[in-house]
Design a protein around this nucleic acid. Structure first.
Length: 783
DNA sequence: CGTGAATACACCGGTAACCCAGTTC
DNA sequence: ACCGGTGTATTCACG
């Protein structure tokens, strides 16, 4: 279908696409248009990755906007939100505006109300619904990207419930669901009352194959000699083979350690194919990575990058991840070995994708369990760079003849699994039942069940009554913890907040009104798992003395909203000791030591809490990543989550009139900035992070007011760079921030003569060399 | 024949990832 | 279940 045949788009849209080199629609896109994508029809598009799904969504959204409406694009990852936003920003050339909102982007509702297209994560949308954002009712089109994630145990139910709520809010809403090819796209379409566009068409051909011995055999019957030389591994041979033709590769492995080891080895392959120019560019990139954070992980990564290879996993900082992704997309990096993060994340296509590990450790399976077909297909779908490769190759590695057969059967010929709703799991329902009641979507048990009838779960459920049963259990739990009350009847809850496991004492009465208590409303709005809230409330209520930071950190670390560190061998002893030393500080009731599982969890939370406490005691990144055997990205993640949970804890403390609100706020501020109590004032000045604050403090500057009055030489002596010092003084509100002619006074009191870096007078450049060292002071605080 | 380096082998430890708040004096 | 890292045994090149 030719672009010009399209109607209903904003004027200028078609020529915009033509300028981008798009002349006609791909077959699935044309099918989508025929199915009514541009006319407000509901649509499920189950098509392979990288076959132009976004364009289908774009056509629907733009036509909705042209009809005077407003569109929402739901993504599963923050990184994807930024990626889509950047893509949609181009619509501005014909007057369509885009906004993003995710947990880390601050944005106010009213600002979003003015945008035509809004990009958000599913959790953010859920949260917006809970908080009753007005503009949600203005929506006329919602796109759900990667809708097959409904299958995900943790996050799937959120997406499912959110879609159901959006549709209930606005029955005329057009729903466009984009999915990978899955086993039961028709069921999803039924659920959404949507037309189904199902296609295996790809703009670039994808060849799937298995490598065994010295041969690579493809699904179309063709073979290719890829000999394994000497002691090298299969993946090295495959990477070398394609690199000699100028193609990059992506290697998927099943653990971080494997990713790092593979990248190290593959660097030996890629380094041989680099031009001098690439070598210098890679050296620069390596420096950027080292500057971003000074940790062993960073150094290892930088060493690989210098040789044209990289590893990629969630232990990397987000900056490092983007650096690697961008350099790979720019063809500077020749190979990435990655954990599955990369398959789900931003677009990083490669000529050849190698799925080395197709089994993953899964304790519940008692060992290694094979990956889902869907997951492997997602990885393989990364093969083939549009415009660069004639076709993409996806290769599985076999180490025996039997393996070879199995891989063909299991992954090459196999159809992906069906998507199954996970809504009836108790943890998921706990949070969504409360939210549904709190935000007024349901006011009675019947209303609640009726609402749940509108979910995919209900349309799939074979086990009648299961949802109802779990719902009752969850309601009982919510009532017991004073999040929900039944009005009319005796609504006094039994106050046994200590019982965190739902007993089966179900509520018999059926026709009373359900209502969220004030506490329940708060919990729902704060986006907390009710169980987390109960744990926090209980911990705070039980505190007789002012809780310490460690106590609060351990408390939030043991909630289900914190993904805690686990104990390594020997650490149970180490943290057992810490537990006995600091037991008095911990909040709530510790489980008995004989309850193995629960005690271990408690210690694991203590470990996580201690990590946060160490961070707030100003230990540096290098020491922490080393001590806890984690990457910079993990540290950042924990700090982030703790910040959020302690913020929520502060609201809860206010809600229950706890006397420890201030203690919670302080603990939160300390973890946010990574500083001791005494530096809290200083870090409130913009440009002052944990390191600079400590240095200023050591020089006698204890609060922002001191920055306004102290001898400027002292500030310069501490902060080195003149520009830095000026900016900070300005941010502190000093009248005369200029550093012109100021001589630095070193912390030891001596007046440094301007000669320390060459003695070229007191011009602005004399201190630039020391600036770099100072810059990474904010490496973590700045994200 | 002795030294140090390269290779071979056995054993042990450890195992992916994601999202998220409303408000105040 | 399996990989990579580590520590130790074995082999080999060479003076």
């Amino acid at each position: 279908m030719n672009l010009e045949e399209l109607s209903g788009l904003p004027p200028g849209a078609v020529s915009h696409f033509q300028q981008e080199g798009i002349e006609s629609l791909y077959p699935p896109q044309a099918e989508a248009v025929e199915a009514g994508a541009t006319e407000g029809e509901n649509l499920v598009a189950a098509v392979p990755t990288a076959s132009g799904k976004t364009m289908i969504a774009t056509l629907a959204m733009l036509s909705a906007v042209e009809r005077g409406g407003k569109a929402l694009y739901i993504v599963p990852l923050r990184a994807l939100a930024s990626e889509k936003k950047a893509e949609f920003d181009a619509f501005e050339s014909f007057g369509v505006t885009t906004g993003v909102t995710t947990g880390n982007y601050e944005s106010t509702d009213d600002w979003l109300a003015t945008k035509d297209v809004i990009v958000a994560t599913s959790e953010k949308v859920d949260s917006l619904v809970r908080n009753g954002a007005d503009w949600l009712t203005d929506l006329t089109c919602v796109v759900s990207d990667e809708v097959h994630l409904i299958d995900d145990r943790n996050r799937g139910p959120t997406l499912e419930v959110t879609l159901a709520k959006l549709r209930r809010l606005n029955p005329a809403l057009q729903v466009v669901a984009l999915s990978a090819t899955v086993g039961n796209a028709d069921e999803i379409a039924d659920w959404l009352d949507a037309e189904l566009v199902h296609s295996d068409w790809r703009p670039i051909d994808l060849r799937m194959g298995v490598h065994y011995g010295n041969a690579l055999e493809f699904d179309d019957g063709s073979t290719r000699e890829v000999p394994v030389e000497g002691s090298e591994k299969q993946e090295a041979a495959l990477v070398r083979d394609i690199l000699q033709e100028g193609g990059s590769s992506l290697v998927f492995v099943n653990s971080r350690r494997n990713a790092e080891a593979a990248a190290r080895r593959l660097g030996g392959v890629s380094r041989r194919e680099l031009t001098d120019e690439e070598r210098t560019e890679l050296a620069d990139l390596a420096d950027e990575i080292r500057e971003d954070s000074d940790t062993e992980t960073s150094r290892d990564l930088a060493d690989c990058v210098e040789r044209g290879s990289a590893f990629h996993h969630a232990g990397l900082s987000s900056t490092q991840r983007s650096l690697v992704e961008d350099a790979f997309r720019d063809r500077l990096l020749k190979v990435i070995s990655a954990t599955p993060t990369l398959a789900a994340g931003v677009n990083t296509p490669a000529r050849r994708v190698i799925v080395r590990d197709w089994r993953r450790f899964d304790p519940s399976a008692g060992g290694m369990a094979p990956l889902d077909v869907l997951e492997v297909h997602q990885m393989m779908g990364r093969a083939g760079r549009p415009g660069l490769d004639p076709y993409g190759e996806a290769v599985l590695l076999a180490n025996s003849h039997d393996d070879r057969e199995e891989l063909f059967d299991r992954y090459v010929w196999a159809d992906p699994e069906a998507v199954r709703s996970k809504l009836a799991a108790e943890p998921a329902l706990r949070t969504h039942v409360l939210a549904t009641i709190a935000s007024g979507f349901a006011r009675t048990r019947e209303g609640l069940l009726e609402f749940l009838e509108a979910t995919l779960y209900a349309s799939q459920s074979s086990e009648a009554g299961r949802l109802e049963r779990v719902t009752d259990e969850v309601l009982a739990y919510l009532e017991r913890n004073d999040f929900v009350a039944r009005s009319g009847g005796g609504s006094e809850s039994d106050q046994d907040t200590g019982a965190f496991t739902a007993a089966a004492d179900l509520a018999e009465s059926t026709d009373e009104d359900l209502e969220a208590t004030s506490l329940g409303h708060t919990v729902s709005r704060l986006y907390l798992d009710p169980m987390s809230a109960a744990e926090i409330v209980h911990g705070l209520e039980g505190a007789d003395e002012r809780p310490t930071a460690l106590g609060l950190y351990q408390l939030v670390s043991r909630t289900p909203d914190m993904y805690e560190l686990y104990l390594r061998s020997g650490e149970d002893e180490k943290f057992g000791e810490l537990f006995y030393e600091r037991e008095a500080e911990l909040l709530g009731d510790p489980p008995s030591e004989y309850e193995d599982h629960r005690f271990e969890d408690w210690l694991a939370a203590l470990k996580t809490g201690k990590l946060l406490a160490d961070w707030a005691a100003e230990d540096d990144e290098e020491a922490l990543t080393e001590r806890y055997k984690i990457g910079p990205g993990d540290l950042r993640g924990k700090v982030d989550t703790a910040e959020w949970l302690l913020g929520a804890a502060e609201s809860l403390a206010r809600e229950i009139d706890s006397e420890w609100t201030v203690a919670v706020r302080e603990a939160r501020a300390r973890v946010e900035h990574g500083v001791s109590e005494e530096l809290l004032e200083l870090v409130s000045v913009r440009g002052v992070g944990r390191k600079r604050a400590r240095q200023l403090y050591a020089a006698g500057i204890e609060e922002p007011a001191d920055l306004r009055t102290v001898d400027k030489g002292v500030v310069l002596g501490v902060l080195k760079g003149e520009k830095t010092a000026e900016t900070i003084l300005e941010n502190a509100g000093r009248e005369d921030p200029s550093m012109d002619g100021v001589e630095p006074i070193e912390p030891d009191g001596t007046v440094a003569t301007g000669g320390s870096s060459g003695g070229d007078g007191d011009g602005g450049s004399s201190t630039t060399t020391t600036d770099d060292a100072d810059d990474n002071q904010s490496s973590l605080g700045d994200f």
